[in-house]
Amino acid sequence: MNLRAIEPQGNSDGLRSQSLGLAIDTSSPILTLALGSVEGVYRDQTWNLDREISAQLHPLLREFIAPQRWTDLAWILVLKGPGSFTGTRIGLVTARTLAQQLKVPLFGVSNLAIAAWREAIKLEIRDRWTVAVSQPGRLGYTYGAVYEVCQQAGTLTALMPDQLVTLEAWNQTLAEVGRSIAGRSIPGRSIQMHLKLDTHTSNSLENPTAPDLQPSLGTTLLGFGWQQWQQGFRPEWYEALPYYG
């Protein structure tokens, strides 16, 4: 699903209740908020807050949500890492509390998974596509995962879930995974791309694309959230926890 930017229809009084999705990312120094319906993105904004993210998140979120109401939300999506431990926790705590109180589903999504999804959109790959994603961790460790993305079917499957491994172990995995994934032989599922992410922004280090050609993170999160929603996924708020490795 590739959402387009649209104008909200009037103020909140004119909107159907629980018709909006809210996406939050605090896992890096850049705060991302996005709000939209299944028809498109209402607002999608980023702020480079560095260490001020804990102080500024709530004033910005309160301003961002208006004139829509909290009760207009049908679901919330939050990135659960890997990322800054403290930053990720702040987003998760906020999203869990909102989802619990509003009694709406909460999608806790891996940063690596969403990077794979976003890359598929960027490269306009509609069919089944297998991508390895890695991001530097601490002390020489690397976060790594292998995902299968299918834009056409709207599916994102972890062939090898997120894990924190040594760089050596990750390279070994990449070498072996062409023949099998996580020990299972899967014909035709050799890795088609290795996506290496920046530590702080979850942006691709390789295959840089001009900013105007790649979907924004907020738009990507909203699109993914609506895909999950339309496929009937309704995760509870307590299922979303930070991923530390």
Binding site: L57, H58, W70, T86, R89, T94, T97, Q101
Partner: peptide, 17 residues
């Protein structure tokens, strides 16, 4: 600091909501 942040963030969210 990490512990305080969890409690204060929860309180801010409830106050805002």
């Amino acid at each position: 600091v990490g512990s305080l942040l969890v409690g204060l963030t929860t309180a801010k969210t409830l106050a805002m909501l």
